[in-house]
Design a protein around this nucleic acid. Structure first.
Lengths: 394, 394
DNA sequence: GCAGGTTCCTTCGGTCGCTGAACTAACATG
DNA sequence: CATGTTAGTTCAGCGACCGAAGGAACCTGC
């Protein structure tokens, strides 16, 4: 019922250009001939379109391939130096800023520590702005070549306004977009950090090629990215994916959200440690958790049970083709206990959807939020309108 | 990542035509001028497009409206007699076939009882085929004027092949599509009955205008239709929406699916009655349930609690703008206890997504599966390619 | 009853984008 | 070096939208 937009003949061009660029980005390098086959566009159209992209410096030649007996095919690919994407990870303990080229190779990186309970929006904004300056000068790249800045933050981000609600930071309606735009003219893309990271796994990690997937992120908090028909699902007010506070034990263990029986109250980092009787006051959660998991105690068994039930609910409700487990707790759990987790999911989901889904671990490690944030920039780059731009020289 | 299709200039036409037809269908009657405003298309384009639709008999004039001081506007609307849609409800106790015109006015109807445990696919197919004949001859409408037959069945329907897996019927891989197509050349659209009914509520009931909604259906079984960005979500193997077997009490009450703690094991019709100590052997569940609900016993309180928790999980995970409660149990529960249900949802969901969602009752009653199935036909009609067709005479 | 005003609708030329077909380019082979 | 093969380009044609200009159908006031 969402009424589609009016289309005009120019939208055809934009859509086809985006498709071709996408193909080249994910499946490249490819010859014009290959592209014609991959996209379904006629050779003529591919030719004129690549001509434009080559002229803009967005696409470059990448060698030749002999073709038996005929003119060799010229390979094309997206120019990795056409532009750069900055990704920012705003987390509880730090603000990290990373600079990537279009191939997602990291070119520079800087991190600012945040003191506990010192998350003033202005401070965070300052770190972000400073970080942008630093990574650019470290890599020797002028700001004009930056396609945009993606920012992954905790909490809920209102789309359009970039207003943030983050309980963990005490942020309630922080206009981070406006705050930053006052001091920089770079295009900004703000989204929830878990969703950004989910998109990274989807594009470059274990999710490649999946149109229906769920990427769950288990760390101190618990979240999920729901990918429906190829697109990240945001819901009506951008808060879709709050998986951590779904109830799996009606009237169960109290959660820091104020509710009871939340998934996070069983499989979040703090919850596991508490249930294992380990103090969560001192540092070194990761080592402690590793130790707890190795113990294979009943707490571990229960954790697997709860995680499996939570995942089974996703399998039943959403029928994804792939479930990707990420986050540092998720990866520790998965590395130690993936077969057991799968068994619990099988026992608690319907046979048909279970058979259609595979459960795998994330491939990008627990620290891919900045990378994920940068993919927000790439996404925009791939869809962008063919516009007049400064020609690239890189 | 689902790569979009290649587009050509003709797709523009098709998309715009579909949009215009959709607008006329849901918001009509409207003048050409109105349509220009509503669709964003230029007056010129609307004029040529409506010209074609009028010529095909798909659209007809519907009176005039004076416009102060100028030429009166001619109203247009979809010709309700251009074609007809047949909807079939295949349920445990009956096969019901209904004939609708394009305005969804029922023109004829026939029902065949099914004996318990007599659900042979051939028998059901026979009833469907016979029903089609009967409603057409009752209404005096030739088969050529039927745009298609929508069929709502229990269980999971594989999209594309129309193969059905329905545990309740003992159907495991029944090729219902092929079975029927052997005896009729009418276009067939098979889908899960709950999803079909969900689409009916979305289009004509309480869901009008919602792009992100969940329609939950509570009867003997419990299911949900997830609507994401305007489209019913099916998942990778068409089984999305199996909400009834999500676990809300880890290790809880045994369910007929073999699992434990399923939502259906608490709020399904049978589950409520059993928990209230009412025998489910004899008939008259509806009266019994009404009595149980009126008692406001602790069982009723618990039922509200479980339903609320289940809905709260949907609110958190999917962030819908509207949740619609349907099905005969759902409607009974909602009529008696909607405020209490809302309170439980509020207590068990996050504030931000809860505030963004409204929880309402279905408006089409508990028996709208055939209507919903017919909407599958309408959907196709609205999107169809402008093709050469027999001109309408109705 | 008619000139002028207003609003709705249609017609027409212009532009844009895709396509098939013809054509050119660049190689291998004998 | 003639021939064959494959890759890529150019060009005329078609379909779709749009803006602008023109026509249609009504109202108002004199």
């Amino acid at each position: 019922m969402a009424r589609p937009e009016r289309r005009t003949v120019r939208d055809v061009r934009r859509g086809n250009r985006a498709m071709l660029l996408r193909t080249l980005y994910f499946d490249g390098p490819a010859s014009r001939n290959d592209l014609s086959g991959l996209t379904g566009l006629s050779a003529a159209t591919v030719s004129t379109m690549t001509g434009g992209l080559l002229g803009d410096g967005i696409v470059v030649e990448a060698g030749q391939v002999d073709s038996d007996g005929g003119r060799p095919r010229v390979l094309l690919r997206v120019n990795p130096l056409y532009g750069y994407a900055i990704g920012v990870d705003v987390a509880e303990t730090h603000v990290r800023v990373e600079l990537f080229d279009l191939e997602m190779h990291q070119r520079a990186k800087v991190e600012y520590a945040l003191r506990p309970a010192r998350h003033e929006p202005e401070l965070v904004a300052m770190h972000i702005l400073a970080g942008i300056e630093v990574v650019l000068s470290d890599a020797g790249i002028p700001a004009e070549r930056v396609l945009g800045v993606g920012i992954g933050v905790p909490g809920i981000v209102e789309r359009g306004t970039d207003v943030i609600h983050a309980k963990a930071f005490g942020w309630n309606g922080v206009p981070m977009g406006a705050l930053l735009r006052a001091s920089t003219s770079l295009p900004l893309y703000v989204d929830n950090g878990a969703k950004a990271m989910g998109q990274a796994e989807l594009w470059f990690g274990s999710g490649r090629g999946a149109a229906n997937a769920v990427i769950v992120l288990i760390g101190a908090g618990v979240g999920a990215t729901v990918v429906a028909d190829g697109a990240t699902f945001h819901g009506v007010s951008s808060s879709a994916g709050e998986w951590g506070h779904t109830k799996i034990v009606a009237g169960g263990r109290p959660c820091r959200c104020g509710g009871r029986g939340c998934l996070e109250a069983y499989i979040g980092a703090e919850a596991i440690l508490e249930r294992a009787g380990v103090s969560t006051q001192k540092a070194g959660w990761q080592e402690e958790l590793t130790r707890v998991l190795a113990s294979r105690s009943s707490v571990v068994e229960e954790t697997v049970e709860y995680l499996g039930v939570g995942l089974a609910n996703l399998v039943n409700l959403l029928n994804p083709e792939r479930i990707i487990i990420g986050g540092w707790v998720g990866l520790l759990l998965g590395e130690a206990l993936l077969p057991e987790i799968r068994d619990v999911v099988a026992a608690n989901s319907l046979a048909q959807p279970y058979a259609a889904s595979s459960i795998v671990l994330g491939r990008l490690g627990p620290d891919a939020v900045a990378l994920g944030a940068a993919t927000l920039v790439i996404e925009e780059f791939l869809n962008a309108t063919p516009a007049a731009r400064v020609p690239a020289t890189g």
